[in-house]
């Protein structure tokens, strides 16, 4: 069971990683007159990644609170 969960977490992480890279690429890279990332693009990519992580953490924290409330409410009912 632990192994299956671990594999799922690995896959979820890899999907999140691929998703994030794709999203930041699509937002930050719009100039294809060169094959090297410009310093402006690089800054954008770094900020995009950092901000996405902070965003995910905040969503996760609110979601955890929401679930805790829902669980309490359901226990008080029964």
């Amino acid at each position: 069971m632990t192994k299956v969960i671990e594999k799922k977490q690995m896959q979820d992480f890899l999907r999140m990683y691929a998703n994030l890279a794709e999203k930041c690429f699509n937002t930050c890279c719009n100039d294809f007159t060169s094959k090297a990332l410009s310093s402006k693009e690089e800054t954008c990519i770094m900020n995009c990644t950092e901000k996405f992580i902070k965003h995910s953490e905040r969503v996760g924290a609110r979601f955890a609170e929401y679930n805790a409330d829902a669980m309490n409410a359901s226990q008080n009912q029964s």
Binding site: F13, M16, M46, T49, E50, I53, A64
Partner: peptide, 28 residues
């Protein structure tokens, strides 16, 4: 290049190892 840069950033944030990663995104 973007894929590599994002990977390095995730790693420096201590998110790149599988176990710790998903756990860092909320523990539901």
């Amino acid at each position: 290049d973007v894929q590599k840069k994002v990977g390095e950033k995730l790693q420096s944030r201590g998110q790149a190892n599988a176990g710790g990663a998903a756990g860092g995104f909320g523990s539901f």
